[in-house]
Nucleic acid binder design. Structure first.
Length: 818
RNA sequence: GCCGAAGUGGCGGAAUUGGCAGACGCAGCGGACUCAAAAUCCGCCGCCGUCAAAAGCGUGUGGGUUCGAGUCCCACCUUCGGCACCA
């Protein structure tokens, strides 16, 4: 036995041994049931941070735990390696993005290996390598062929910091999710994925995801933003044009007293041209457009509107109402025009009062009439219709469909489901991404690159000029090509794909990572998918997780995989904090995993991060508590040492001490198994193991039964193995085993060992603890009652009074009610 | 405004089905070992009170249900997260 716990030597030794023995390699050819454990793959920024350590430690415990339970576990790792930091580094330091990325990957891979994680590195995927992005491009082409990828001119989000467009999902409170710049609107031709076609399915299938946190599902639900309502057609009084509005309250259509259009609505221009209102309206529009997106969508913004001199005809009653433009109407949502019903909408009410517009109540609680003058606020509750012609007296809920059906007869109305979700903008005006495999030909238009010409390679000898445009645009060798259809000179698309495209299918590629014929073989993907457990930060709740769900559904529809949902169970881990805030370089409160591993070893780092808090909660870093975990591992080291020494002169007498230790051991096995498998409460699992070790120290004071000590040692190491793989492997061999602890089967609880002869019964009087009694287990209730009442302490407390009632909870508690 | 989560010692956190609140760890205090220190081992450690004990109080606040509530119900406060002039 070595004198002290030399973690540096031990960890190095076993990491090399595991790699040489290939103990973490998996294949589909196994009689065992499969289990797919996946952690969100990292961006290779250069160094691991504590968030990574937490993410991968959690995943590693689960993967090892499942392996020990007899599953064929897929536990892969890779690199989400396209993206802006590489390009920014290139611009700043003149290093090629490919080189920078490659070096970072090498460094981070070394750091990951130093943590002793059970990855099958043969399945590593790297999204920026041609063997991967070839298939990202191939998938783009499948989307394109199936009408799910299209190009259109639109007003898009432009980040001046990143010099590229952004998807809606990447704009947070009007700012760029990456660099915090205020996002601008630009009119550009861009590529989109038609995620809106899948909006309903993405929403419906959330119900299937029982293993997802409700929080994440709610966030996706909010983001998809389904609302049920109707489209209503309004004709223009002054000419024969018409327009549609979207409303969720068609039951209030008789109360429409005005309509409001977004300043961008194309009809506005037509209606004001050459009229007396033209200049004032233009002034208004200019004013609105000067506002940033942030200000414009702020609820603080004072609602303003302006009559534009035209009128619309209410399709329900033929009434003419004024048309206004308003600063609060969003052109991108619904139809960009809304009907104003001040009597039954709070915003409309205050808007109408401010501008002196008419208010007509059309719903009351019981169908009785009232006037606008009596109203101090909008009536938004349920009720019966009034002032609504033949619908008077009808329940407003019923009226919603009745009115739409009536209007449908004349083509003026139809039911309509609306979503907040927009199509996914995937073009990026940047270099370091997968090129969009499209060629523009003067004769044939946009032509997809034929599949046998994939990948469209990123050039390597690129010169970076910080111009704000993709350098690809100026590379003649890349841009100039010929049309795949007619052979005429043509130009390549210079935009690349959003990196979220690359990361939307990597979990499928892991099933068949080296395939050169297709993204993956269906049989392999079907064997491994879905992912049984996915682990990552909650910041991906919408972006990555929504896109991946979309990709899986498309791949399913294209016949590439069977599953329709990629991730069966999702664990969203909390952040790692120091001094109360998230570790970040700018705040200077980071702790380097490399340093911690150097100082205490990987096992200590892993143990602390799993012990300090439950996984979903934020974790406060505490240097002293790390020391505590290190001390605990030393304690484990020593108790094994002591037990081994004790066995030399050990005996076989079996008494209370032995029984107690065995009960403790098997209770611990039970608790740890439940804590890991049912609840992922690694913190309580670890504390249970600590209690076992404390019990083992007590036992050795006066006892030395050889068999019991061996059972305790092996039990302890097996329980601890998923958390701290190196020290347990070392000690496992130290106590005489020759094969790896990580190939062992998880301990089974010996139910007989759990049985107890005596139990401590808590005695309460009126719910307050007054005594404790040691009694034989499973005594009859009457017997327990008699024993308890005969106690001196209790008799004294009762003072001769007769109990009103005595509640007996078997083997636990007696409550005497006076 | 709407939706969701949370609130427990000096700190991180336990309490599985309504049944001993504070497991485990950190910090702190005391003891053993040592010439001494470190390391280690043993013990104490919610508040108030007491020589010590007993009693009393105690899981954000106020009510309620129950023999019994951190846990269930009602109302409220605070913090965090998401959505938001979404028609």
């Amino acid at each position: 036995m070595q004198e002290r716990y030399d973690f540096t030597a031990i960890e190095k030794k076993w990491q090399e041994n595991w790699e040489n023995e290939g103990i973490y390699k998996v294949s589909e050819d196994s009689p065992k049931p499969k289990y797919y454990c996946l952690e969100m793959f990292p961006y290779p920024s250069g160094n691991l941070h504590m968030g990574h350590v937490r993410n991968y430690s959690i995943g590693d415990v689960i993967a090892r735990f499942k392996t020990m339970h007899g599953f064929n576990v897929l536990h892969p790792m890779g690199w989400d390696s396209f993206g802006l930091p590489a390009e920014n580094a290139a611009i700043k330091h003149g290093v090629a993005p490919a080189k920078w990325t490659k070096e970072n990957i090498a460094n981070m891979k070394m750091q990951l290996k130093a943590l002793g994680l059970s990855y099958d590195w043969d399945r590593e995927v790297t999204t920026c390598l041609p063997d991967y992005y070839k298939w990202t491009q191939w998938l783009f082409l499948q989307f394109y062929k199936n009408g799910l990828a299209y190009k259109k001119g639109a007003s898009v989000n432009w980040c001046p910091g990143c010099q590229t467009v952004l998807a809606n999902e990447q704009v947070v409170e009007g700012k760029c999710e990456r660099c915090d710049s205020v996002v601008e609107k630009k009119s550009l031709e861009q590529w989109f994925f038609k995620i809106t076609d899948y909006a309903q399915r993405l929403l419906d299938d959330l119900d299937r995801l029982e293993g997802w946190p409700a929080k994440v599902k709610t966030m996706q639900e909010n983001w998809i933003g389904r609302s049920e309502g109707a489209m209503l057609r309004f004709k223009i009084a002054e000419n024969d044009e018409h327009f549609w509005v979207y409303t969720t309250r068609p039951d209030t259509v008789f109360g429409v007293t005005y309509v409001v259009m977004a300043p961008e609505h194309p009809l506005v221009e037509k209606l004001i041209a050459g009229t007396a209102y033209e200049s004032k309206v233009r002034e208004f529009i200019t004013k609105v457009q000067k506002l940033s997106e942030v200000d414009r969508s702020s609820s603080e913004l004072e609602k303003e509107g302006l009559f534009i001199g035209a009128h619309a005809i209410n399709p329900a009653n033929g009434k003419e109402v004024p048309i206004l433009i308003g600063n609060y109407v969003i052109y991108e949502y619904g139809t960009g025009a809304v009907m104003g019903v001040p009597s039954h909408d709070e915003r409309d009410f205050s808007f109408a009062r401010k501008l002196g517009l008419e208010i007509i109540p059309v719903i009351s609680k019981d169908g009785s009439m009232y006037t606008a003058e009596e109203m101090s606020e909008a009536y938004i509750d349920e009720g019966k219709l009034i002032n609504s012609g033949k619908f008077d007296g009808m329940d407003n809920e019923q009226a919603k469909s009745a009115i739409v059906e009536e209007l449908a007869k004349s083509g003026d109305g139809e039911k309509k489901v609306n979503f907040r979700l927009r199509d996914w903008l995937i073009s990026r005006q940047r270099f370091w991404g997968a090129p969009i495999p499209i060629v523009y030909c003067e004769h044939c238009g946009a032509v997809p690159v034929p599949e046998d010409q994939l990948p469209v390679l990123l050039p390597s000898d690129i010169e970076f000029k910080p111009t704000g445009e993709s350098p690809l645009k100026y590379m003649d060798e890349f841009i100039n090509t010929t049309c795949p259809i007619c052979g005429a000179p043509a130009r390549r698309e210079s935009d690349t794909m959003d990196t979220f495209v690359c990361s939307s299918w990597y979990y499928m590629r892991y099933s068949d990572p080296k395939n050169t014929e297709r993204p993956f073989r269906k049989e392999k993907a079907d064997y491994w998918l879905d992912v049984d457990q996915y682990i990552g930060g909650v910041e991906h709740a919408i972006l990555h997780l929504l896109y991946s769900r979309f990709f899986t559904k498309v791949c399913h529809d294209l016949g590439l995989v069977e599953v329709e949902e990629p991730f069966r169970n999702l664990l969203t881990q909390g952040m790692v904090l120091k001094d109360g805030s998230k570790m970040s370089k700018s705040k200077g409160n980071t702790v380097s995993p490399v340093e911690i591993v150097g100082k205490y070893g990987a096992d200590t780092a892993r143990l602390f991060i799993l012990f300090a808090a439950p996984p979903e909660r934020d974790l406060e870093w505490n240097d002293q508590a790390v020391e505590g975990c290190y001390r605990f591992l030393n304690r484990v080291w020593r108790i094994i040492d002591i037990y081994e020494a004790g066995k030399a002169q050990g005996g076989d007498s079996f008494g209370k001490a032995e029984k107690d230790l065995r009960r403790l051991l098997h209770n611990t096995i039970k608790r740890v198994t439940e804590d890991i498998s049912v609840r992922f409460n690694f913190n309580t699992a670890v504390s249970a193991i600590m209690e076992l070790v404390n019990g083992m120290y007590q036992y050795k004071e006066n006892n030395n039964n050889q068999a019991v000590m061996t059972e305790a040692e092996e039990g302890l190491l097996l329980l601890l193995a998923p958390f701290v793989p190196h020290i347990t492997e070392e000690l496992w061999h130290e106590i005489g085993h020759t094969d790896s602890i990580h190939k062992q089967t998880w301990s089974v609880v010996d139910e007989k060992a759990l049985s107890v002869d005596e139990v401590t019964i808590v005695v309460q009087i009126n719910g307050k603890v007054r005594d404790r009694v040691e009694l034989a287990a499973d005594l009859a209730q009457e017997e327990v009652k008699a024993q308890v009442l005969s106690r001196e302490k209790i008799a004294a407390a009762l003072d001769g009074k007769e109990p009103k009632k005595v509640v007996v909870i078997p083997n636990k508690l007696v409550n005497i009610v006076l």
